[in-house]
């Protein structure tokens, strides 16, 4: 499988990259890790006139906490997330998700920014951002803007980014004490896309009740979904409250709109969502308690 012809540029700065995107008149695509883009090119499902390779831009590969946020540079490789002790300790859902994306070879190149801005409802990081009330920073011709993750995922393969904007950073608010997150994914086989995936982020109150709850869903709608009603159902409830947990699972399944495909029927996927939400709440709460 051979890609179609395209022009190529490897700018050294974000400004230069944005300029190239702007002047292409919508015919350019950003190349980050390339692990989704290059297969699309090979299958000739994408045919950009220009590929803007942002890998040569310095300063987009970092993981740090500052200003009340965990900040992950867009060019941070997925494998780097897996190796981060900070993530393992405090951002469990993000860490879990990094270990389930594709396979280790793909993770060595695939980037955080690419995984998010591709807008693929089957990608794993968007659900984590939705659960964790994340934000996304982008730079365009007229400067920077910040999106709430909730507003970012518009439709399948469509995000809120303008064609001449580049995602530069993903942010997650530093969680309060007694918080925990988890990402659970059911895949048919290793390296597959999720049949269904669930990210859960909880912060526990004094009585171990859920003071804050975030639930994100992978692969069961046109975009990654934020299961708001399910989150609401758990507020003030404990993860051991079977009835509340079941209701949350039910509401999350209701919020999803999976398609029947080679990975399974829609009903099966809804069933997985119920199961994974219940398990996710349980495990996220366990992590929250362990880290108090």
């Amino acid at each position: 499988m051979i890609p179609p012809r395209f022009e190529y540029a490897a700018p050294k700065s974000i400004g230069e990259a944005v300029g190239l995107l702007k002047s292409s008149g919508g015919e350019a695509k950003v190349l980050a890790g390339g692990q989704s883009m290059i297969p699309l090119l090979k299958l000739r499902l994408a045919a950009p006139a220009l590929l803007v390779d942002i890998n040569r831009i310095e300063g987009l590969d970092y993981i740090r906490e500052s200003g009340g946020f965990l900040r992950v540079g867009a060019l941070t490789r997925v494998a780097t997330l897996s190796r981060s002790a900070l993530l393992e300790r405090r951002y469990g859902a993000l860490h879990d998700a990094s270990l389930t994306i594709a396979d280790p070879l793909v993770r060595n190149l695939g980037t955080v920014g690419g995984n998010i801005s591709h807008g693929d409802p089957s990608n794993d990081l968007p659900a984590v951002l939705l659960a964790a009330e994340g934000e996304l920073a982008a730079t365009g011709p007229s400067g920077g803007r910040t999106f709430r993750a909730e507003d970012f995922f518009v439709d399948t393969f469509t995000t809120a980014l303008a064609q001449d904007e580049i995602l530069t950073e993903a942010r997650i608010p530093v969680p309060p004490p007694r918080s925990g997150g988890v990402y659970l994914k059911v895949e048919q086989k290793v390296a597959d896309f999720a049949t269904a995936g669930v990210a859960v982020q909880v912060s526990l109150g004094r009585e171990s009740e859920c003071a804050k709850v975030g639930i994100g869903l992978t692969g069961v709608g046109p975009t990654a979904l934020k299961a708001k009603k399910a989150e609401g159902a758990m507020l003030g409830k404990k993860a051991t409250d079977r009835k509340a947990v079941e209701e949350a699972g039910e509401l999350a399944a209701d919020a999803s709109s999976p398609a029947s495909d080679i990975r399974g029927t829609a009903e099966y996927k809804r069933g997985l969502i119920r199961m994974l939400v219940a398990r996710g709440l349980d495990r996220a709460s366990q992590r929250a308690r362990r880290k108090s």
């Binding site: 048919q188 049949t195 079941e246 699972g249 039910e250 399944a253 990975r263 399974g264 029927t265 009903e267 099966y268 809804r270 069933g271 997985l272 119920r274 199961m275 219940a278 398990r279």
Partner: peptide, 18 residues
Amino acid sequence: IEPEKLWALDVSDGGRTR
């Protein structure tokens, strides 16, 4: 065998029997 039949619980019914 279809993947959904390989769960110990009835996932299509929500895994309530967990």
